[in-house]
């Protein structure tokens, strides 16, 4: 039983997506070894995905008995506000850039852009904070913890 009595924007659609995803997981789990035995490698994945199917159906059923919120926020506004979308895009670019330009350059660039966008104190402040952070991170992880940091394929 839900302790939250109001539906969040897009919650029903999300519950439907969970049911579909769980169904897909179950079919993938079934393809491992089918119902050949009780101790095969596919049994636990089928049990787990079976629990996912049942619980996602219960979650979906639960959404029908809850009230719609009086707030007029759309699903996009609730789930993907512009700030989250932009930040996630920068994070994705960062992940793509690491194998090419290496950790130091990619992280420095990411910190600069992200702090500039979120803090809005101007490029100079963002540059100083990112540079100081990178020096601290390099010192702590590379020198103290002796962690190998990812290098880029371009240089």
């Amino acid at each position: 039983m839900e302790t939250n009595h109001y539906l969040r924007p897009g919650e029903q659609a999300f519950a439907v997506a969970l049911v579909l995803l769980s169904g897909l997981f179950f079919s993938e789990a079934y393809s491992i070894s089918g119902f050949k035995g009780l101790t095969t490698g596919g049994v636990m994945p089928m049990l787990a995905s079976g629990v996912m199917v049942v619980s996602s159906l219960a979650i979906l059923a639960g959404t029908f008995s809850r009230l719609r919120s009086a707030e007029t926020q759309t699903t996009i506004d609730y789930l993907f506000p512009l700030r989250v979308v932009l930040f996630a895009s920068v994070v994705a670019l960062y992940a793509v850039a690491i194998p090419y330009v290496g950790f130091i350059l990619a992280s420095g660039g990411f910190l600069f852009v992200a702090i500039l966008g979120l803090w809005r104190k101007g490029p100079l402040w963002s540059l100083v904070i990112s540079a100081v952070s990178m020096v601290a991170i390099y010192f702590l992880f590379r020198i103290v913890f002796q962690v190998v940091l990812p290098v880029g394929s371009l240089w």
Partner: peptide, 15 residues
């Protein structure tokens, strides 16, 4: 918030 959500999350982790 609910048992179903907890069970779903746990099963997802097992997967």
């Amino acid at each position: 918030e609910s048992f179903a959500k907890g069970a779903f999350a746990g099963a997802l982790g097992v997967m």
